[in-house]
Structures are given as C-alpha cells and as structure tokens.
Amino acid sequence: MLNNLKNYHIILASQSPRRHQMLKELGLDFKIQTKDVEEVYPDHLKGEEIPVYLAKLKAEAFVLDLNEKELVITADTIVCVDDMVLGKPKDRADAVEMLKTLSGRSHQVISGVCLKSKHKEASFSTTTHVHFKELSLDEIDYYIDNYKPFDKAGAYGIQEWIGFVGIDGIEGSYFNVVGLPIQRLYQELSTF
C-alpha cells in the first residue's frame, strides 16, 4: 500500500516482537537489524523529548552503514508519571515498585519514532494517557511472576493479563501503549 517506499529496503531496528508483528501487519517487507546504543539522554530533556532523542540516537548508529536504498525505523517508549520517567525494570523488585507507582493512577506512555535514510530524516512522538485501577500486591506479584515484564517500559504490557484486569481507561492510541504508534507511523511513512 505504501507505494512511495517501493525503492527502499526497510530496516526495523528493534528486538521487540510486538513491533515486528505490527510492522508485518502493515504489509511491509523489512529486515530486523539492531546496533548497540547506550540509551542515555541528557537530564534537561522532558516528556516527549526523551523517546524522540533516544529514537534518533538509535537511528544515528546506522548513518555510516545506510546505502541509497535503505530506510531505518527506530523507536523508543517511556512511561511517565508525575514527571518521573519509568524505563524497563532492572529486576523483580524494580518491577514491583513501578507497578505500585502506577496503581490507582493515570500515566502517560510516550513513544518516539525516527525514520532515517541516507539523505532524509523524520521523527515524531505520540502520547497515550493510561489509567490503572488500584492493584493489589497479589495481582502485581502474579503478573510479574507469570509474565516477566522486564523488557517493557513501566513493567507492564497492556496486551497481557495486567492490561485485562488493571487498566480501566485509555485516551489515545492503544498500539502506542503496545510499543509502536502504528497509525501515525503509517501516515509518516506515506509521506516520507
């Protein structure tokens, strides 16, 4: 459907199986390739600036390797609550603390995406507001022990058990919370 991309070989720079699946569902042919990037951002960045910065940082790692016919897609997702950024949990105790922090409150899931070719770059962010019901410690323990959400910002996946029982409302893109604002990505790809 994205005829303007026919001449590009698309690279998705992500290990996330959720991102792989969503891009596949768009009908795009792509390969998966990642580069080691230290995901550190300057302290002065806030909110949507953070994942956009990190997505650009990941794309920049490809700049010397891209040929004329390649397009790399990079993304980063963070969870923000009260101006505090929750990344991926370091361990089980960290995951418990994150879910206790999110319990009974609203937070923002912010994804930054960067599209980069040899001569062009475009980046954007998408924010979704998510509200959790009050979670019991038993629910948190059950979820962490059975779903091991250590690869997810904020220590949860909306598409998993905790999302079914704990999330009582969202405002914005569901797919952004899964890990990739796919509708916005489609729009951006169609004009790249």
Results as ranks from 00 to 15, higher is better:
86 L>I: 05
181 P>T: 08
115 L>M: 07
161 W>T: 04
49 E>I: 11
158 I>F: 06
65 D>S: 15
156 Y>N: 04
76 D>M: 12
2 L>R: 04
103 S>R: 07
49 E>Y: 08
155 A>Y: 07
172 G>K: 08
12 L>K: 05
124 F>K: 02
54 L>Q: 03
6 K>F: 13
73 I>M: 01
191 T>L: 11
181 P>E: 07
107 H>G: 03
160 E>D: 13
81 V>K: 13
160 E>Q: 07
160 E>C: 09
12 L>R: 03
88 K>F: 10
182 I>S: 01
127 T>S: 07
115 L>N: 03
135 L>M: 06
191 T>S: 13
86 L>D: 00
100 K>A: 08
23 L>E: 02
138 D>L: 11
29 D>T: 14
31 K>H: 08
137 L>T: 04
12 L>V: 12
97 E>N: 08
105 R>L: 15
25 E>D: 15
118 K>P: 03
108 Q>K: 15
120 K>E: 14
114 C>A: 11
86 L>V: 03
178 V>A: 02
14 S>H: 12
179 G>E: 03
1 M>H: 08
61 A>R: 07
17 P>G: 08
75 A>Y: 06
84 M>C: 07
28 L>P: 01
138 D>P: 01
82 D>E: 12
138 D>H: 14
57 L>Q: 10
110 I>W: 02
3 N>S: 13
75 A>G: 09
99 L>M: 10
123 S>H: 13
134 E>N: 11
49 E>P: 07
93 A>S: 14
44 H>S: 13
70 E>M: 05
162 I>D: 04
125 S>A: 15
98 M>N: 04
160 E>R: 01
163 G>C: 12
94 D>I: 05
4 N>R: 13
40 V>C: 05
55 A>G: 08
105 R>G: 08
34 T>H: 06
39 E>I: 09
160 E>I: 04
4 N>S: 09
8 Y>R: 06
15 Q>E: 15
176 N>A: 09
7 N>H: 11
45 L>P: 00
72 V>P: 03
47 G>E: 14
109 V>W: 08
51 P>K: 06
129 H>E: 15
107 H>V: 12
63 V>T: 07
23 L>F: 04
69 K>S: 14
84 M>G: 00
